[in-house]
Structure formats: C-alpha cells, structure tokens
Amino acid sequence: MLIRVEIPVDAAGIDQLLRNAFPTSEEAELVHRLREDGLLTLGVVATDEEGGVVGYAAFSPVYVDGEDRQCVGLAPVVVDEAHRRQGLAEKIIYEGLDSLNEFGYSAVVVLGEPAYFSRFGFQNAAEHGLHSKLPGTEASFQVYPLADGEMENCKGVVEYSAPFGRG
C-alpha cells in the first residue's frame, strides 16, 4: 500500500472509488468541480500494488468571515470497502495533515462524526471560535489546529468553497 499526494493520472481511479463508495455521484462530482475550479488544495491517495486507488481524502479551501485565512476543509474521505477497518483512512488523513502543516496552513475543519474524527485530534470548532455557516452543525463541526498560535487568525464563521453549494 502506498500513501501519497494525488497526481493527474489518479483522477479516473478517484472518480471510480467515489462513485462505488457512495450511494449517489454527488461526491465524485464535487471532487471533479473542485479540481476543475482549481480549488483542490490537496488530495491524498492510497494505492494498491497495481496502482489502483483504494483510498482518498480531499482538502479544499474554506473561508472564515469571507476571507482566506489559510484554513482548509476535509471532504470527502473514502476507503474502498475491501480495504476498510485496516487503518487506511487514518494514514490518509495523517498524511494530509502533515503535508498541510508543512505547507504552512493554519487549520483543517471537518463536518463529521465527533467520535470518529476526535481519534485524529480534531476538536469541537466552537471551542476555538469557529462556527459553521450551516445551521444545526455545531456538535459535528470540528477543527484540527496545524500550528501553535495559528488559530488566532481563524476565528469566525466558516464557509466552504462554491462547489460545495452546487447541487
């Protein structure tokens, strides 16, 4: 298993993985739009011995009070059904967090199950002064601070980039 930053040749495998893993094509279309609009900050893939994509995590810009404050959102995260429960999602997410930290980003936000994402160090975003623009998401909106002191610049209402709002 190889965990690495996605390259252009991975796009078809990522698309197929997303279409197979989710009940609709919404996530595949989202990643396509992010890539097409130049809004895919980072994509991390897990590939099998033949180079097939078996895991993926996308990171894209989010805006805090309408400004780019070097924060990104994590979505979607997916692992092929045959490779689940082997710690692969954890490896993909950590690879992304490490890379974003090296690139100088401030924080990563995620809208997801707190019990799951807290395992990676995500914390309730409201406790850090971040709030989702989406109503009713306070409990599931979480943040992973990437560098000490950087969260001071990331306080306010978070909005995902335009492709997340398209149907």
Rank of each mutant, 00 (worst) to 15 (best):
L2H: 12
L2F: 07
R4H: 11
V5A: 10
I7C: 07
P8V: 03
A12Q: 12
I14S: 04
Q16E: 14
L18R: 05
A21L: 01
A21H: 00
T24M: 03
S25P: 11
S25A: 15
E26D: 15
E27Y: 02
R33F: 09
E36D: 13
D37F: 11
T41P: 03
L42S: 06
V44K: 10
A46F: 04
T47H: 00
T47Q: 11
E49Y: 01
G52E: 12
V53T: 12
V54L: 11
Y56M: 00
F59M: 08
F59K: 03
S60W: 05
S60V: 01
S60E: 07
V62T: 06
V62K: 08
V64Y: 07
Q70E: 09
G73L: 04
G73V: 14
G73T: 05
L74Q: 03
P76N: 09
V78E: 06
V79E: 08
A82R: 15
A82H: 14
H83C: 10
Q86Y: 03
Q86N: 11
G87T: 08
L88R: 02
L88I: 15
E90V: 02
I92G: 05
I92S: 06
G96A: 00
G96F: 05
L97A: 08
L97I: 13
D98Y: 07
F103R: 15
G104C: 12
G104S: 09
G104F: 01
Y105P: 08
A107V: 13
V109K: 07
V110P: 07
P114Q: 00
A115I: 05
Y116P: 10
S118N: 11
G121Y: 09
F122A: 02
Q123E: 15
N124P: 15
E127F: 00
K133W: 01
P135W: 06
G136W: 08
P145T: 13
L146V: 13
A147M: 08
G149I: 07
M151I: 14
E152S: 14
C154S: 07
C154Y: 05
V158M: 11
E159A: 12
P163N: 08
